[in-house]
């Protein structure tokens, strides 16, 4: 979710096999320097893809002697997913970060084969995406400051996952500002 000179990315903590909850502490947000990647979908692919990008981004950083920008990361994710066009990773990633050249917030989302959705406001993904669309569309407004953005993204996520049987068990919320990242752990409904 985009705010004024800040972005937020949040995830729930449930890992499940259909209705069976396997773990209630499975974060889905991974950090790659200045860029944050959220991954929903098949858990094994979530881990694989997260590690794959860990490798790719580390290689980028060593080769280019710089951090990857959110935009470049988006294109890297897109091309990497499209490489598996006919045997995709079952994930729908979300990217959030601040571009340090322009100082502007950046978010985008993808389908499982890498089609990028550049959004100005918010991106949702996962089993509760319908609910998230509703809450985000209802609660979001332009130019929210970091604290207001935190409240908005948290309320949007918590209330959405409470209406989805397959999501929940608390949340992680990252508020990304130019020179500061705040990570908060939210206690949600435990059912």
């Amino acid at each position: 979710m985009v705010g004024k000179d800040c972005v937020a990315i949040a995830c729930d903590l449930r890992l499940g096999l259909q209705a069976l909850t396997v773990s209630n502490n499975f974060p889905k947000i991974f950090s790659y320097g200045d860029v944050y990647l959220g991954l929903t979908g098949l858990a094994t692919d979530v881990s694989t893809v997260a590690d794959l990008f860990r490798y790719k981004v580390n290689m980028y950083r060593l080769r280019e002697e710089r951090q990857i920008s959110p935009q470049t990361m988006a294109n890297l994710v897109s091309s990497s997913l499209y490489e598996r066009r006919f045997g995709p990773y079952f994930v729908s990633p979300v990217i959030a970060g601040i571009n340090h050249t322009t100082g502007k917030p950046f978010i985008c989302g993808f389908d499982s084969i890498g089609c990028i959705d550049f959004a100005k406001d918010f991106i949702v993904s996962g089993t509760a995406s319908d609910q998230l669309f509703g809450t985000c569309e209802g609660l979001w407004e332009p130019d929210l400051g970091p604290e207001d953005l935190f409240e908005t993204v948290s309320q949007a996520l918590l209330n959405a996952v409470d209406r989805d049987a397959l999501s929940g068990w608390g949340a992680h919320v990252y508020i990304i500002e130019k020179d500061k990242v705040t990570k908060r752990l939210l206690k949600g409904r435990q059912d």
Partner: peptide, 15 residues
């Protein structure tokens, strides 16, 4: 370019 959708920096191309 096909990976990052931007052209390589000079040093990368030189390498």
């Amino acid at each position: 370019k096909r990976i990052y959708n931007e052209y390589p920096p000079t040093r990368i191309l030189v390498q």
